[in-house]
């Protein structure tokens, strides 16, 4: 983190690239989780449509999966805030 912020400061010293880098970094970090969450929710909807009686269980598991996947995007968000 120290190295990152020094890097960010150096970048800022030359030209203020920190926010740009943070923005690009966050955008990259959001790609994977975006696809992942799409998959999870899509498959869950499929499962719920196929077996409506197990919808409750599927929903719970879906939220868990979304939470785990989302964490990666959120780490990207936090890192973006750290380096900007």
């Amino acid at each position: 983190m120290e190295a990152l912020s020094i890097l960010a400061q150096d970048a800022a010293a030359v030209a203020d690239f920190g926010p740009i880098g943070a923005g690009i970094g966050y955008g990259l970090a959001a790609i994977g989780p975006g696809i992942g969450i799409g998959y999870i929710v899509g498959k869950s909807v499929e499962a719920m449509a196929r077996q409506p009686e197990s919808a409750g269980m599927v929903r719970t598991t879906m939220f868990l999966g979304v939470a785990f996947t989302e964490a990666i995007a959120l780490i990207g968000f936090v890192v973006a805030m750290l380096v900007q």
Binding site: M1, E2, S5, A8, Q9, A12, A13
Partner: peptide, 19 residues
């Protein structure tokens, strides 16, 4: 203008520069 801030110390320099 998006105002940004960094970690603890040594910021003044970059900030002043920006200022």
């Amino acid at each position: 203008t998006a105002v940004v801030k960094q970690g603890a110390s040594g910021i003044e320099v970059s900030l002043t520069r920006r200022v």
